[in-house]
Amino acid sequence: MRPFVYNANPARVVFGSGTIKQLPDEVRRLGLRRPLILSTPEQSRHATQVEELLSSLGIESAGQFNNATMHTPLDVTEKALAVANERKADGVIAIGGGSTIGLGKAIALRTDMPQIVVPTTYAGSEMTPIIGQTENGVKTTQSTPKVLPEVVIYDVDFTLSLPQGLSATSGVNAIAHAVEALYSQTGNPVVDVMAEEGVRALACALPLIIENKDDEAARSDALYGAWLCGTCLGLVGMSVHHKLCHVLGGAFNLPHADTHTIVLPHALAYNAPKVPEAMAKLARALGNDDAVEGLNVLLTKLKVKRGLKEVGMPEDGIDKAADLAVKNAYWNPRPIEREGIREVIRRAWAGEPARSDF
């Protein structure tokens, strides 16, 4: 058995269908009197549902802030903080995906307000002490217990309306967390088990959702897998895949889940020669003899976009991204060399099938 260190993150998780009904009890348990409800404009109906649920049981809220934005831009955070201060909010309830959860974390970072999160996608940010923020086109990340949500309510019902395309990319985004956890410098046997099971659950469930978006059993399995993968992200360090996605998202304002989906197989192929044990576990989880090919097959089944050029990245941005990616590089099992990283980005930009010939 290899030496390891394992630290569990404190968080209360409520999982099931219809679990939103337990939200008022969780608000009371945290002693909140005026929580501010956060969402994106598209998720405002869910925010209204939460506000009405609390009001029906005599719990006052500080109203809603419905302008959460991808990549957590600083100016949006400042506007949300102004609303929270003006309305004397004492906590936040974030309902939505990574954009909303990121805003809740940004507020908590600056105020220490407790957070309750109701995820509606499979992104996994709710289980991590990690926050990424964007200012002047540069996305930076940090890890601090201050941004770890106190309560996460997983309600499968809120994922039933998630469009199939976003279900696929959000789910692959979650898989990316587990993939990098399997070869993390700070990995351990407990995380390995969660990572493999999380990938297996999502790889089985996502194609079923593409066939039938109303498959409740598949939706439940996917959310379970996303919880496991998000937990992995919160417990160990990430590597070149996440570095690339942070660079690409911040520099070109690319959609978060699509970027993870497109980059993942190429980043894995880059690291493959140095992580044979992780590759074997991942291949088993994907039901394929080869992990890279297993990802190629899964992405084909999910009918997702495969090229960064399809989601708005210009070809002349390849070199800029490569330069940014080798600055302040994350630890990686294979040395971060500009020529190789540029080729990862180029293949991802072109939408080529991933192959392990770096």
Rank of each mutant, 00 (worst) to 15 (best):
M1V: 11
Y6V: 08
R12E: 14
V14H: 08
V14F: 10
V27T: 07
R28Y: 12
L30R: 01
I37N: 02
S39L: 13
S44N: 11
Q49W: 12
E51M: 07
E52P: 12
L54E: 11
I59H: 01
S61E: 13
G63D: 12
A80T: 06
A89S: 07
S99P: 15
D112Q: 01
D112G: 00
P119V: 04
T128H: 06
T128N: 03
G132C: 03
Q133V: 12
G137C: 07
G137M: 09
V138M: 11
T140Q: 14
T141G: 08
K146Q: 11
L148R: 02
E150F: 13
V156E: 14
D157C: 13
L160H: 06
L160G: 05
P163G: 00
L166D: 09
P189Y: 07
M194T: 03
A195W: 15
E196H: 02
E196T: 08
L202W: 03
C204N: 14
N212V: 08
R219L: 08
G225A: 01
L235W: 14
H242I: 06
K243T: 09
C245Y: 07
G249Q: 04
A257D: 13
T259M: 07
A269F: 11
E277W: 15
L282Q: 02
G287R: 08
A291D: 15
V292T: 11
L298K: 00
T300E: 15
K301S: 05
V304E: 13
V304Q: 01
G317Y: 08
K320S: 04
A322L: 01
A329H: 10
W331T: 13
R334N: 04
I336A: 01
E339V: 04
R342S: 05
I345K: 02
R346I: 13
E352K: 11
F358D: 06
